[in-house]
Design a protein around this nucleic acid. Structure first.
Lengths: 177, 177
DNA sequence: TGAGGACATGTACCTAAGGACATGTGAACC
DNA sequence: GGTTCACATGTCCTTAGGTACATGTCCTCA
């Protein structure tokens, strides 16, 4: 369960409402760490119960902004330094590639074209984001620095996958037995 | 739910028992697509109920091997060609990197060392696997070809992440505000 | 003044995933 | 003959994730 720590981390940057957090998850982490709003509201409730966050302010339209507490900050720091990283990835593209031999060559080529396009576009999107940051469009806070590092990872992963899909097209379907 | 199709795909290579399938998931797909045996046995039961697989043979120690049916083959092929790929990845390493600014520089350096080592080792493991395949140690069936492509993706992703972690170490923690 | 859209928060339900626990079998080795 | 280990299959329970549905508010613009 890292949604919990994802929320704490985002709240460490400053107070935010469930709606804000859902939007930030969607924007920045859309493909990398999806989270739907029902889960977010539920988790915020639990975090508040445990005293890791507290209500910062109530605004119009029932808006409720939360603020991280000292205990919350301690918890996210503990997680970051003490807890083991979960390295599982669950990449459906790779699972599918195990079964390419079941596909018609034409279908496979189409599939790889789609994959290559998708990954290249993702890489380009994150690359544009990275360049905007490097031009200083988002300032130069520590938070921005960290985000720049995250974005760099996204660029490199998607580029690697785009290259992989292109490479896969050059692999002959089979030779002998 | 792709475990279902993962199982069908593996069974398309030939009959296997739940135990066999759990081992193969563990070996080949350990970090990329984890699956515990309880899920596998349960899913096999469902697949059998739906006629996508059937019992091939019963062996010693209650061993039950399944075989894919025509309907099962049709279903895995349909999935491969008609169904959209789910591209979400949920990489905890990237989520954590968003919060690097919360870590002490020393802890962060240690963390990045660990990450770099882990990713480099994973890349090396898959690279060794790839080289064995290229030497022809596993024959040259269509299945082997596909597996070679999967492994190539793993090599490239882990290498990209290893490089990223090394690069991240060179980013200065922060300058101004 | 009325309609539409973005804002904002939730409930309910269903499936997937993971960990703990339970059980029994055949082979190998001492 | 007994112990140990790999083989082999499952149940049970909890948590996590995702979709659908529900509700109400404030602002803008025609």
């Amino acid at each position: 369960m890292s949604l919990r720590h994802g929320l704490l981390g985002l709240l460490a940057e400053g107070p935010a409402s469930g709606y804000d957090l859902a939007r930030r998850f969607q924007e920045v982490l859309g493909q990398i760490w999806p989270a739907q709003h029902p889960k977010i509201y539920a988790e915020l409730g639990r975090l508040a119960d445990e005293g890791l966050i507290e209500v910062d302010s109530e605004g119009p339209r029932r808006r409720k902004a939360y603020r991280i507490t000292g205990a919350g900050l301690a918890e996210i720091r503990r997680w970051l330094t003490d807890e083991d990283v979960d390295h599982t990835m669950r990449l459906q593209s790779l699972l599918r590639s195990l079964f390419f031999w079941l596909m018609e060559p034409d279908d496979l080529r189409r599939h790889l074209d789609d994959e290559a396009r998708f990954f290249a576009e993702s890489a380009a999107r994150y690359r544009a984001y990275a360049e905007a940051k490097d031009r200083g469009e988002f300032g130069d806070s520590p938070q921005t620095r960290s985000m720049r590092i995250t974005i760099e990872a996204a660029v490199r992963i998607y580029q690697a996958l785009a290259d992989w899909a292109e490479w896969a097209k050059t692999v002959p379907p089979a030779t002998g037995k």
